[in-house]
Design a binder for these strands. Structure first.
Length: 413
RNA sequence: GGAGGGAUGGCAGAGCGGACGAAUGCGACGGUCUUGAAAACCGUUGGGCCUCCGGGUCCCGUGGGUUCGAAUCCCACUCCCUCCGCCA
């Protein structure tokens, strides 16, 4: 949720919103409606003050003068209720319109769309395509079974099997250990959440068609642990010594992937269900930009530690989600496609999400929230399957995972 | 799934139609006393929003309703507890 006061008072803040694609005319209308709403709130409260005073006077008055006073208070009541209706209607309109305004892009975010990102860093060697892409290879090795997944649940569902299943657990352990060492509190959150939680986390109504719904119980399967982690301090007042509060949530993630038919159909690059370790930070307002760099650095260590070549991009304004003021994507080189593909990302939401979550720091206003992927397992496996093939067709386990897998290579089948 | 009970300030707990943003106790903070501490005593001690900075308004689980007036009465919902049944 946007800060309406800043929107009206700070040209730079407003400009950042325009860069995210919101229309100037909408912002003008919003400013005007909000100004009217404030005026109406003041006058309504004045009226209520008079009505309150009239009612209190009745309690102190003698029985003889009561009837007349009650009648007078009754008149004020009618007048007040008209003003209240008007105020409510205006408040609803302002709220509705305000929800359509995205979080203004930070000044360091480049203008433009998907291809207008700023390249921040590039680490490691781009390698040439392997004999088999991850889909063929994983099938041949018995790591992934998509046909049977489809038979069980439909397309984009997979069985992850044999050593790959153990590598999945190893990745979870590796990523979790890494972030816990950095002070993130390990969490296994609920993956079914209420509609209100989806709204407050900022996923509804925009991403409604991407979410699986359990209608019989009015619950929703989360697409990321970000949702329940955002709920961890919803409606709370944190004291200054409770921040920064950092959490690492492990959860299965469920995504309908509506509108992606024919896109990334090979293997498990894009599936309806996968596991992920997600980082979420609650920090003081003056610390969120440092925190974003911290998340980024941690992601680089996790992905770099696996021996994968990657680059970091500063995503352009038009390609940012509504809640993010700035976002880094970490992309790994996918040899079979000879291009970089997204593996993790991290965003600074500033106070945008915290407003809707109503989470504040005592005396410091709204908390700032950030989130970032520690490890999205299925997608990480994709990259590991391609980069880990050796000359004999065997698969080499990244060194950092070996303590968790107990084996360092899988023989070709 | 069935039957009961409950939700009030940091915590405990009173209040059950008007002087209640709310008794009392504990805790926390400040002070007196003390070499220091404890004890004792005195005082302070929730938050949101609007503001012509005087003040006003809203908040007793949440949302509605009754009333001139609701923590208090009515309705719905949510959550918690106890018992029975079922269950990894």
């Amino acid at each position: 949720m946007i800060d309406l006061r800043r929107l009206a008072d700070e040209p730079a803040y407003r400009a950042g919103a325009v860069r995210k694609g919101i229309d100037d005319a909408v912002l003008d209308e919003l400013d005007e409606l909000e100004a009217r709403r404030r005026g109406l709130q003041s006058s309504t409260e004045d009226l209520r003050a008079r009505q309150n005073a009239a009612s209190k006077a009745i309690g102190r008055s003698s029985p003889e003068e009561r009837p007349e006073r009650i009648e007078e208070a009754g008149r004020l009541k009618v007048e007040l209720s008209t003003a209240e209706d008007e105020l409510r209607e205006l408040t609803d309109r302002v709220g509705e319109l305000a929800l359509t305004v995205p979080n203004p892009a930070h000044e360091s975010v480049p203008d433009g769309g998907e291809d207008d990102f700023e390249l921040v860093a590039e680490v490691g060697e781009r390698s040439s395509p392997p004999p088999h892409d991850h889909a063929d290879y994983a099938e041949a090795m018995g790591f992934i079974d998509l046909p049977r997944g489809a038979r069980t649940s439909g397309s984009r569902f997979a069985y992850v099997m044999r050593e790959a299943a153990l590598v999945e657990f190893a990745l979870v352990q590796y990523a979790m250990q890494m972030v816990v060492a950095e002070g993130f509190v390990p969490v296994v959150p609920p993956v079914l959440v209420s509609e209100q939680m989806m709204i407050d986390a900022g996923f509804f109504p925009t991403d409604r068609n991407q979410v699986y719904e359990i209608e019989s119980d009015a619950l929703h399967l989360v697409g990321t642990a970000e949702v329940p982690l955002a709920g961890l301090h919803r409606g709370e007042r944190l004291s200054a010594d409770e921040v920064p509060a950092r959490y690492a949530g492990f959860s299965s993630c469920f995504r309908r992937e509506a509108g992606t038919y024919g896109k990334d159909t090979r293997g498990i690059f894009r599936v309806h269900q996968f596991d992920k370790v997600e980082m979420f930070s609650y920090v003081a307002p003056d610390e969120s930009w440092d925190e974003l760099e911290r998340l980024r650095a941690l992601q680089e260590r996790i992905i770099g530690g696996l021996g994968l070549p990657y680059r970091i991009i500063n995503v352009a304004s038009g390609d940012l989600g509504a809640a993010a003021a700035k976002k880094y994507d970490l992309e790994v080189w996918l040899p079979s496609e000879e291009r970089y593909r997204e593996i993790t990302s991290c965003s600074n939401y500033l106070d945008y999400s915290a407003r809707r979550l109503d989470c504040r720091i005592t005396g410091e206003g709204f908390v700032h929230t950030l989130n970032g992927t520690a490890c999205a397992i299925a997608r990480t496996l994709v990259f590991l399957f391609e980069h880990g093939q050796d000359a004999e067709g065997g698969w080499v386990v990244p060194e950092v995972l070996r303590p968790f897998t107990g084996f360092d290579r899988v023989e070709p089948r």
